[in-house]
Each structure stands twice: as structure tokens, then as C-alpha cells.
Computed example of a mutant assay.
Amino acid sequence: MLDPNGDSRGTVARVVALMRALAEAGRDIGVSELAKRLDLPVSTVHRLLKLLIEQGMAEKTRDKRRYRAGLELFRVGALVANQRHRRELIEPVLQRVGEQCGELSFYCLYLPALQKVMAVSRVDGPSPAPYPCPLFEPMSLMWGATGRAILAFLPEQEIAELISKGEPSPATGAPLPPARKLEAELAQIRDRGYAITYGQKVEDAVGLAAPVFAEGCSPVSSLCVTVPRQRFQWKMEPKIAKVLIREAAKLSERFGCSGAQGSQRRGGQAA
């Protein structure tokens, strides 16, 4: 059992253990189960959850019966992970993509518990993008190339669940296309190995993204390039797509998804 004393050290230990339990659960979890895992009284877990909620480290589900890791916990975790791996792994990839494509490139993590994506690293092109591209802010998985490059490779049941929520476009407020049409678009992304969207998250932007897979070849992130609409030309698409697919495949291998497996997931487009 965790230190039952009421001093500050005991409280800190319990709070840390609770944050760890929320992060490791990977799903919404009830107070009783948390209390059992931590070997703490339910009343203590309630009190600690209230403290975490106040700081954005935890949040309640809509039915108020379960809890999950909060946005701030995800943001802080992403900051730490990004600082550790950015220079040695992600930044060189983004530098290569930026040099070859000449536009803003960035790397987005998939946040499964939130069903969102979040940009955690970027490299600007020679000409600045005329729109904001913030880091560490959760974004839609349903709209934009950054999200759809990942969405297309999620399990069918999860895709269906996300489509049923009917999330509107963050840029225009437009509704999702009919399920059958969206499923066809996702199938096309799987076949060619990348996503391309026009003004779905930012009205004046064209986005291209390729998925990055980890061990087990599940999608964990996306490698992206965004081009201002006024600068985009059709002939740019195949060049940018080829660079993104190649660099995403290299990252996937580093993360434990072999070249052959990754190529199969991307419809054989890893070359």
C-alpha cells in the first residue's frame, strides 16, 4: 500500500501513482478500479482525482462515472518525449523533408485516448506559412491530412465509431461526408500510402501526410507537409508524397515496424 501518512511526501507519491495509473490504463477507468490498483481508499482517490482535474491532468467522462488522462498530462508527456527524441530522430527527418519539399514540415503524434493528433515538432520552409501551425495542441483526427493519414489505418470498428460522431470541419464547420464516401477516401489513402486534403483544418492550406507505424505496425504518428493554397501546384503532389512515404517508412523501421510489413500496410508504396 502507498504511504498512508498525510504528509506532503505521501501525497506526492499518491498523486504520481494515480497519474501513472491513468496513463497506463489506456481507456476510461472508474474510481473503484483505480482504488484497487493503487490499494487506496476510494475517498482518497476521489480527492486526488479532484486535484488532478483542477490542473488538467485528468478529466471525467461525459457520464461522470469514469476518468481518463487529461489534455495537460498528454501535453506534458509529449513535451518530455519530444525533447528526448527530437534531436536524434525526428529533427533530421524533418530537415530532409523540408530541404526536399521546400515547405513547412511537421511531425504529429496520435493520441489514442483522446482520438486526436498533436504536432510536436516542425521545421519551417524558406517561405513562412501565412497561417498558424501551433505545436502541442490536440487537433482533429477526422479532418486534414495529419489526421486522416492515421485514421485510414485504424481498426475498422474504431473508424466506424469516429465517423458516427460526425465531427464538423474545424476550418469551415462543414459536416463529414457520408460514411460510404469517407470510407472510400480512407481506402484510397491506404492504397497510395499518403493523404492529401484541401482547406480541411486551415482554409488556405493544402496538407499532405504519410503514416508512421510502430511495433505491431499500428499507426502512431504522421509525417506532414503543408503548402499555402496559392503556392500549391498539382505537379508538387507526387514529389512531396514520395518524400513523405520514404521518410515515414524509415521512421517506421526505427520504431519496430519492418520494411515489408510497413509496405504492406501502405499498399506497397514504401519504395
Rank of each mutant, 00 (worst) to 15 (best):
M1R: 09
D3F: 11
N5E: 13
G10P: 13
G10Y: 11
G10D: 11
R14Q: 09
V16L: 12
V16N: 12
A17R: 05
R20S: 04
L22Y: 06
E24T: 14
E24W: 08
G26V: 06
R27K: 13
G30Y: 03
G30F: 06
S32K: 14
K36T: 09
L40M: 14
P41L: 01
V45W: 02
H46K: 13
R47F: 04
L49M: 10
L51T: 15
L52D: 03
L52I: 03
E54R: 14
G56P: 01
E59S: 12
K60L: 11
T61R: 12
T61P: 04
K64D: 09
K64H: 12
Y67A: 12
R68E: 01
A69I: 14
L71I: 13
E72D: 15
E72F: 13
A81N: 10
R84H: 10
R87L: 15
E88G: 15
I90A: 03
L94H: 01
Q95Y: 11
Q95K: 14
Q100C: 04
E103C: 05
L104A: 15
L104P: 05
L104D: 09
Q115R: 15
Q115L: 12
V120R: 00
R122C: 04
D124A: 15
P126T: 00
S127G: 10
A129D: 09
P130N: 04
L135S: 02
F136A: 03
F136C: 01
P138D: 06
M139S: 13
S140G: 05
L141Y: 10
L141A: 12
M142V: 13
G144R: 00
T146P: 08
R148Q: 11
A149H: 05
P155V: 01
E156Q: 15
Q157P: 03
E158A: 00
E158C: 00
I159V: 15
A160D: 15
K165F: 08
E167P: 07
P168N: 00
P170E: 06
A171F: 05
T172D: 03
A174W: 02
P175M: 04
L176M: 10
P178I: 06
A179P: 08
K181T: 12
Q188Y: 07
R190V: 01
T197S: 11
Y198T: 14
Q200T: 06
E203P: 09
D204C: 05
D204K: 05
A210E: 05
V212T: 10
A214I: 02
A214Y: 05
S218N: 12
P219W: 07
P219N: 06
S221P: 04
S222I: 05
V227M: 07
P228S: 02
R229K: 08
R229Q: 10
Q233H: 14
K235L: 05
K235C: 09
K239W: 14
I240N: 07
A241G: 15
K242I: 03
I245L: 11
I245Y: 04
E247T: 04
K250G: 10
L251K: 01
R254W: 15
R254D: 14
F255G: 02
S263A: 02
R265F: 04
